[in-house]
C-alpha cells in the first residue's frame, strides 16, 4: 500500500508521464480511501489549468 508521500508524487507525475498499470492501481486504491490526496489530485489539475490561463486571464484594468 502506498503512502501519501508516494501518492502525491504520482499525482504530480501523472501530468508529466503515463503511469504504469501498477502505479495506476496503487494510486486508485490510495485515493479511494484518502481524502487529502484526492483533493491534492484535483488541485494539481487546477494548477495546470490556472497556469494555462496565466497569460490569458491577465486583463488590463477595466476602466
Amino acid at each position: 500500500m502506498i503512502k501519501c508521500k508516494q501518492a502525491t508524487q504520482m499525482l504530480s507525475e501523472k501530468l508529466d508521464r503515463t503511469l504504469s498499470a501498477k502505479e495506476k492501481i496503487n494510486l486508485a486504491m490510495h485515493t479511494a480511501i484518502c481524502t487529502p490526496c484526492r483533493q491534492f489530485g484535483k488541485q494539481m489539475e487546477t494548477i495546470r489549468e490556472l497556469s494555462k490561463s496565466y497569460t490569458k486571464a491577465k486583463k488590463p484594468d477595466e476602466k
Binding site: T8, Q9, S12, E13, L15, D16, R17, M44, I47
Partner: peptide, 10 residues
C-alpha cells in the same frame, strides 16, 4: 525533472 516539478507543485 519529474521530482522537481513535483516539488514545485507542492
Amino acid at each position: 525533472l519529474n521530482v522537481t516539478l513535483y516539488r514545485a507543485r507542492l
